[in-house]
Amino acid sequence: LRLEVKLGQGCFGEVWMGTWNGTTRVAIKTLKPGTMSPEAFLQEAQVMKKLRHEKLVQLYAVVSEEPIYIVTEYMSKGSLLDFLKGETGKYLRLPQLVDMAAQIASGMAYVERMNYVHRDLRAANILVGENLVCKVADFGLARLIEDNEYTARQGAKFPIKWTAPEAALYGRFTIKSDVWSFGILLTELTTKGRVPYPGMVNREVLDQVERGYRMPCPPECPESLHDLMCQCWRKEPEERPTFEYLQAFL
C-alpha cells in the first residue's frame, strides 16, 4: 500500500490517493489515533465489506491497528460538496442534479434492503467520479466515533443540521433518520452546496425544527421536489418515504 497524494483533511483524519497491490488506484482514509476503537472498527469493517453495490464506494481493505487505515475505490472528482461548490458546479442544471440524487437514493435503497443504517448521509460523504457518477461513502463509521465533541451530539463536530430530530435528541438512528438526511442533501444539491438552514446555528436549528420549522423551497427548485424534501422531514419517522420510493420518484 503506497500513500501518494494527500487529498484532504477532516476533523478525524486525512484522505490520500495511493496504490494498492502495486496496480490498483485507491483512496486511503487514515484516522487520528483515539477516534475509534480498533476492535469496534474491525467489526464494522466486516459488515462494510459485505455491502456491495454500484452506488456505494467499495471497501477494499482495512488496517485495524492505530493509525487505522481504510482502503476504498478511488473517485476522481472528490466529495459531492466540493464538486457542487467548484468550477463544474456552476454548469450543473436541475436534470443532472436530480440524476445525482437518484443515484444516491439507489445506493441508499440497497442499504435499506440490507437493514443497515448510514448515520451520516450528506454531500460531504458522497463521492463523485467521471460522468457525474455518484456513490455513497463512509457508511456506518459515524457510530464508532468516540470523540466527546461528537458523541455528545451537541458538540461542534456533530452534523446536527443533517440529523433527524429523534436521532439528534435521543440517539434513535434508523434508515428513517437517513431519509431525513437525504432530504437535507437534496437542498445541498439544489443550492450547489450551500450550508443548510443558512444564518442559523446548530442550537437554533434543533429548537426550530422541533417546533415544526422546515426549510423553504430553494430558488429555481420545482415545488414537486420541495414537496419530496418535506416528506423526508415528516416528524414521525414511519411517515417518511422509503429510499425505494425516493429512487422511483426521482
Results as ranks from 00 to 15, higher is better:
residue 58 Q to M: 10
residue 153 R to Q: 07
residue 122 R to Q: 00
residue 51 L to I: 05
residue 92 L to T: 11
residue 26 V to T: 13
residue 50 K to I: 13
residue 213 Y to K: 05
residue 114 M to K: 11
residue 56 L to I: 14
residue 86 G to S: 11
residue 43 Q to T: 06
residue 124 A to L: 03
residue 179 V to R: 08
residue 57 V to G: 09
residue 239 E to C: 14
residue 238 E to Q: 14
residue 80 L to W: 08
residue 94 L to P: 06
residue 32 K to R: 08
residue 157 K to F: 14
residue 231 Q to S: 10
residue 134 C to S: 08
residue 1 L to E: 00
residue 148 N to R: 06
residue 230 C to M: 09
residue 242 T to R: 12
residue 148 N to P: 02
residue 95 P to M: 07
residue 247 Q to P: 15
residue 28 I to V: 13
residue 128 V to P: 02
residue 163 T to M: 00
residue 76 S to M: 13
residue 155 G to I: 04
residue 49 K to P: 02
residue 208 Q to M: 14
residue 236 E to D: 10
residue 46 Q to C: 09
residue 126 I to D: 02
residue 226 H to S: 11
residue 171 G to S: 05
residue 170 Y to S: 07
residue 24 T to R: 14
residue 63 V to E: 03
residue 48 M to K: 01
residue 22 G to F: 14
residue 223 E to P: 11
residue 146 E to G: 05
residue 6 K to Q: 12
residue 122 R to L: 00
residue 134 C to M: 09
residue 78 G to S: 10
residue 194 R to A: 10
residue 103 Q to H: 10
residue 107 G to S: 05
residue 87 E to L: 13
residue 218 P to A: 08
residue 195 V to F: 10
residue 17 M to G: 15
residue 65 E to F: 15
residue 125 N to A: 01
residue 93 R to H: 07
residue 62 V to L: 12
residue 225 L to P: 03
residue 175 I to C: 15
residue 122 R to K: 04
residue 64 S to G: 03
residue 184 I to W: 00
residue 77 K to F: 09
residue 119 R to F: 03
residue 244 E to G: 12
residue 173 F to T: 05
residue 184 I to T: 07
residue 164 A to G: 13
residue 108 M to G: 14
residue 143 R to E: 02
residue 32 K to W: 02
residue 182 F to P: 00
residue 246 L to I: 09
residue 77 K to M: 10
residue 25 R to T: 12
residue 141 L to M: 06
residue 199 G to T: 11
residue 16 W to R: 15
residue 217 C to P: 12
residue 237 P to Y: 14
residue 43 Q to R: 09
residue 247 Q to A: 11
residue 172 R to D: 01
residue 102 A to V: 09
residue 196 P to R: 01
residue 90 K to H: 12
residue 33 P to C: 07
residue 191 T to I: 05
residue 156 A to I: 04
residue 226 H to R: 11
residue 81 L to Y: 15
residue 180 W to A: 01
residue 137 A to K: 01
residue 31 L to C: 08
residue 9 Q to K: 05
residue 108 M to H: 09
residue 156 A to H: 04
residue 119 R to H: 01
residue 215 M to E: 09
residue 141 L to R: 02
residue 82 D to S: 09
residue 118 H to A: 01
residue 25 R to M: 11
residue 180 W to L: 01
residue 45 A to L: 02
residue 182 F to A: 07
residue 196 P to F: 01
residue 186 L to T: 07
residue 120 D to P: 02
residue 134 C to F: 06
residue 18 G to A: 14
residue 173 F to E: 00
residue 180 W to K: 02
residue 21 N to K: 07
residue 240 R to H: 01
residue 87 E to D: 09
residue 194 R to H: 08
residue 194 R to D: 03
residue 15 V to W: 02
residue 193 G to S: 06
residue 190 T to E: 06
residue 237 P to I: 14
residue 61 A to Q: 09
residue 60 Y to H: 12
residue 209 V to A: 10
residue 106 S to T: 10
residue 31 L to E: 11
residue 75 M to Y: 06
residue 237 P to G: 12
residue 59 L to Y: 02
residue 35 T to Y: 11
residue 152 A to D: 03
residue 172 R to H: 13
residue 27 A to G: 04
residue 209 V to N: 06
residue 17 M to D: 14
residue 249 F to V: 07
residue 17 M to F: 14
residue 75 M to N: 05
